[in-house]
Amino acid sequence: MERNRLDEKSKRRPSGAAVMRDEVTNSLLRAFLEEWAVHGYAALSLERVAARAGAGKAAIYRRWPSKLALAADAVQKFGMVLTDVADKGSLRDDLRAYLLMLRRALRHRLVRKILPDLYAEASRGSELLSVLQDLSASRRRGGASLIERAIGRGELPVGIDRELAMDMIPASLYWGMIVTRRRITRVQLERQVEALVAGLRAI
C-alpha cells in the first residue's frame, strides 16, 4: 500500500513546474500579431510581445524555439491559412465560396497589415520565406481541388494551365483589398466570379 502511494507521488508534476496555459499561449499569439502589424516583422521585439501579453519573455521560449516558429504558428492559427472549399456543385459556386472565404480573411485588420509585410520580407529573402511558402501552399491546394473538380464535371478543359489558373483565382480580390485598399462588395465579388469563369475557360 505504501509502495502504491510512493508510485503515485512520483507521477505528480514537480512543485513549481511551468504549466502551459492555453490563455497565455493565445495572448502571446495575439500580441505577436499586434506587434507585427504595428512594427513589421524585421523590427518586431519579443520583449514587447511578452509585455503586451502580460507575460514574461520566458513564456515565449517555453512554447516556441524562435521568433520564426512563433510567426509560423500565429499565421496558422489566426485565419490567414485558407481551407479547402467543399464541393458546391459547379465551378461558379465553388469560386464564389472560395472568394467569400478569402474576402473574410482579407477583411481582418491584422491580416491587411501583416500580409503585405510578409510578402515584402519574403521577397528580400528573409527567414519568413518558409512561412509564405506554407501559406501559399495551403491556398494553392484549395485552388487545385476546385480546378480538378471543374475538370471532372467537364466545366474546364483537361489541358488547362493549372498554375496560371491558381494564380488568377485570388489575384483580383487580393489586389483590390490589399494593394489598392478598396472595399469589395458582394456585387463586385460576383463580377469577379463571372470574369474568372470566362477567363479559366480560355486558358
Score class of each variant (00 low, 15 high):
residue 5 R to T: 05
residue 8 E to Q: 15
residue 12 R to S: 13
residue 13 R to E: 12
residue 14 P to K: 04
residue 20 M to G: 10
residue 23 E to R: 12
residue 24 V to A: 13
residue 25 T to C: 10
residue 27 S to K: 10
residue 29 L to D: 04
residue 30 R to H: 08
residue 30 R to N: 09
residue 30 R to D: 14
residue 34 E to W: 07
residue 35 E to G: 06
residue 38 V to S: 12
residue 39 H to F: 14
residue 45 S to Q: 03
residue 46 L to T: 01
residue 54 G to Y: 08
residue 57 K to E: 07
residue 58 A to P: 01
residue 58 A to M: 10
residue 60 I to T: 03
residue 61 Y to E: 02
residue 62 R to Y: 09
residue 63 R to G: 04
residue 65 P to E: 06
residue 66 S to C: 02
residue 78 F to D: 10
residue 78 F to R: 15
residue 79 G to H: 00
residue 79 G to K: 00
residue 83 T to Q: 15
residue 83 T to V: 10
residue 85 V to F: 02
residue 86 A to Y: 08
residue 87 D to N: 09
residue 92 R to A: 04
residue 93 D to N: 12
residue 94 D to H: 06
residue 96 R to W: 05
residue 97 A to K: 03
residue 99 L to F: 00
residue 100 L to H: 07
residue 102 L to V: 09
residue 102 L to A: 15
residue 103 R to W: 10
residue 104 R to L: 06
residue 105 A to P: 01
residue 107 R to F: 06
residue 109 R to A: 14
residue 110 L to M: 13
residue 110 L to V: 09
residue 112 R to H: 06
residue 113 K to A: 14
residue 116 P to G: 02
residue 116 P to D: 02
residue 119 Y to V: 12
residue 121 E to T: 02
residue 123 S to Y: 06
residue 125 G to R: 03
residue 127 E to C: 02
residue 131 V to P: 03
residue 133 Q to T: 14
residue 139 R to C: 06
residue 142 G to V: 01
residue 142 G to W: 00
residue 146 L to Y: 06
residue 147 I to R: 10
residue 147 I to S: 12
residue 148 E to A: 10
residue 148 E to V: 06
residue 149 R to G: 10
residue 150 A to E: 05
residue 155 E to A: 02
residue 156 L to K: 05
residue 157 P to M: 04
residue 164 L to M: 12
residue 174 Y to K: 14
residue 179 V to A: 11
residue 180 T to W: 07
residue 180 T to N: 09
residue 181 R to W: 02
residue 182 R to G: 12
residue 182 R to F: 11
residue 186 R to W: 10
residue 188 Q to N: 13
residue 196 L to Y: 05
residue 197 V to L: 00
residue 199 G to I: 00
